[in-house]
Write a protein that binds this DNA or RNA. Structure first.
Lengths: 232, 232
DNA sequence: TGCCGTCAAGAGCAGTGCTCTCGAATCCTG
DNA sequence: CAGGATTCGAGAGCACTGCTCTTGACGGCA
């Protein structure tokens, strides 16, 4: 019953795909606020009202693009990470970092949609949760593997995390099995530091100050790896 | 010649102030994309075209709000930092961190305007550069003071920064006199980590995972202080 | 063949940023 | 103090937006 779909259903699926394709191109050029249903319809030779047969509102189209974006980023991260030897934990971490930064630089408007200011009035539906966690899952896997292999040795320069965060740490621990609260806390530091640096670069906070962004990023991420306790 | 301003000039300045006040309230409620010149004019009992006598475009009004926002954040940071003893470098750093986080939580839409996705098509004019650096200046002062006092002892867990970043480090060094490239690099890590964490919390990346945000933040910032080499 | 659901098209509503024109109010100068 | 220049608010209008509703045609199914 999936191969013998009616012609109408097939053309409908095809149109939905084409609309998101056109919308993605518009998003890449004009950004989220410049994404117009009417412009998309115009480019497709449709009348604007026809779009609403496929996406009930502009927000639904945005949601589709957000899910696509998370999946594209997640896939880029997974692919980059897969090229490294399983026991090269630091290499896997750096591959993830570079993949995220490079994907963000290549798709700035989509990145802004995922990690920038939330669109006012827009409430991300639950469909976005799973795709949004793909990159984090890869990261958690790396740290978890390093813990399991006994290769994670965080330098003893930090105070113990307070007990109150242990319930949150439990939530994160589903991604990083076997990690102590201290390791979880460092992982959050590294993860927010990674995205903090990418966002600063992309959103213009480094303008007129830091020009060798790739080198700064590389060194910064290496430092976070050390703080995490990944092998040098 | 500034006291004896003509009546027209005074009412003009007053109107500009009132427009930005109303706009700030609208921004706080509806966010940047929901900020409408017509709505502001309506609330003020003006006709929409009259607004254009005072702000040539919507972007110019946004610029005014951005400058105000940077100044408000900078002032909050300066005040919080000033309450700490000059030789309590870690306390000063933590005061800055808390001030930024609390201000961001209190003014989420303004924070999004300053540190979130740039508004597409909007190019920040040079007027914003100086106010944007107020918080960074406070941070640089703290680190610079600690260096001068010989109280900055970064733990030797990081590799040396590559020579290529030294020109960028020079630019940052104007804010942190006497700091080595290594210290500069750690300062960038701490600064991006701070804003990365605030943005993650504010933009929803911690949803469904980390609930004790204040405690996580506190511990995280303490950790960054240690990485920087601030005294325990 | 006839029916029903799906579809594109068009008109229309309320809202937006922005421009232009037109009198009126205000300021500056002779 | 009078007149010309400048500035101002008001209104109409343009091109655009998201979204709704109705209408008529087309396709799939019994």
């Amino acid at each position: 019953m999936s191969a013998s779909r009616t012609a109408r259903e097939r053309v409908r699926a095809e149109l939905i795909r084409e609309i998101t394709d056109v919308a993605r191109r518009h998003l890449a050029v004009d950004g989220a606020t410049g994404l117009s249903l009417r412009a998309v319809a115009r480019e497709m030779g449709m009348v604007s009202s026809a779009i609403y047969r496929y996406f009930p509102s502009r927000d639904d189209l945005l949601t589709a693009l957000i899910i696509d974006g998370y999946n594209a980023l997640g896939e880029a991260v997974e692919k980059a990470e897969a090229t490294r030897a399983r026991d090269d934990f630091t290499g896997r971490w750096l591959a993830v970092c570079r993949a995220i930064r490079e994907w963000a630089l290549a798709h700035p408007h989509v990145y802004a949609l995922l990690y920038g200011s939330p669109v006012p009035g827009y409430r991300a539906p639950d469909d976005t949760i799973a795709p949004a966690a793909r990159d984090t899952a890869v990261f958690g896997q790396i740290i978890g593997d390093a813990v399991a292999a006994g290769r994670l040795n965080p330098p003893a320069i930090l105070p113990e995390p307070p007990a109150i965060i242990s319930s949150d740490a439990d939530a994160v621990r589903t991604l990083i099995p076997g990690a102590s609260d201290d390791v979880i806390s460092r992982a959050v530091t590294a993860w927010t530091g990674l995205y903090g640096m990418v966002s600063f670069e992309l959103f213009g906070q480094f303008n007129n100050t830091i020009e060798h962004r790739a080198e700064f990023f590389e060194h910064n991420m290496t430092g976070l790896a050390r703080l995490l306790g990944l092998p040098a």
